[in-house]
């Protein structure tokens, strides 16, 4: 068994081991992740607006500047929400490339190979 392991078949076995180690993502898991990410990103925007509007509202109550505080707070909150959204998306994007890079060397010292030698 050990003699028949030529370098060509090693490539093939590596590819097979790679496929075993990183199988196609389960569609349900992909759907779950996408759902989680979607609600998360939507929430970033909404929370920014809510916080901005609430700050503006209390500023109005304090200074009696109604309705300008709330309008201003709403607009600032909108900007803050978009900024948070942008940051969250950027963080996701950075994470994906990191995960892909991290996945590459893990295949080389695959468990199945070590057990054989």
């Amino acid at each position: 068994m050990t003699d028949s392991r030529s370098s060509e078949s090693l490539e093939a076995r590596l590819a097979a081991a790679k496929a075993r180690a990183n199988p196609e993502a389960d569609p349900r898991s992909v759907a779950g992740n996408a759902f989680a990410q979607g609600t998360r990103l939507a929430l970033e925007l909404v929370a920014g607006i809510l916080v901005g509007a609430a700050l503006g509202y209390f500023l109005d109550r304090w200074l009696g500047s109604s309705p300008f505080g709330m309008i201003g707070g709403f607009l600032l909150g909108l900007v803050a929400g978009f900024m948070n959204l942008m940051r969250a998306v950027n963080r996701e994007a950075a994470k994906v490339t990191d995960a892909e890079l991290a996945a590459l060397p893990r295949v080389e010292d695959d468990d199945d190979e070590e057990r054989l030698f």
Partner: peptide, 22 residues
């Protein structure tokens, strides 16, 4: 600065509402 403060204050809201809503 106000935008950064608002986005910082939004953190606990997104953190809690996300889990609760899901």
């Amino acid at each position: 600065i106000p935008i950064e403060i608002i986005s910082f204050l939004a953190r606990p809201i997104t953190l809690s509402v996300r889990l609760f809503a899901n």
